[in-house]
């Protein structure tokens, strides 16, 4: 899969769900991309580097979201 296609799929899917939640597990992303985890990871890494996606971590678990999306950034006064 090309990066552009991956970006479109991810942005579309995550935007659709933006009203209810902004953070997703890695598995959700590989399902959206319909790829095996290892192949999905290469594209997801690139989307992080391109500042489309960003990480969120509970310390023990990591999640992904569209950059800047969600409520907590505002709550932490980090934006």
């Amino acid at each position: 899969m090309e990066l552009a296609e991956a970006k479109e799929k991810i942005v579309d899917a995550l935007t659709k769900k933006a009203k209810t939640k902004s953070k997703f597990y890695f598995n959700d992303l590989s399902e959206i991309l319909e790829l095996k985890p290892r192949d999905a990871k290469k594209l997801v890494n690139k989307l992080v580097e391109d500042e489309v996606l960003e990480y969120w971590s509970s310390g023990s678990t990591t999640m992904y979201g569209l950059k800047g999306a969600g409520k907590q950034a505002a709550a932490e006064h980090e934006d």
Binding site: V48, E49, Y55, S57, T62, Q72, E76, E78
Partner: peptide, 19 residues
């Protein structure tokens, strides 16, 4: 309080947000 900051650019770990 816990925070979601996770690290430096491009890394998903190594930093734990704390407020």
């Amino acid at each position: 309080k816990h925070g979601g900051i996770v690290g430096v650019f491009g890394y998903g770990g190594g930093v734990i947000g704390r407020y």
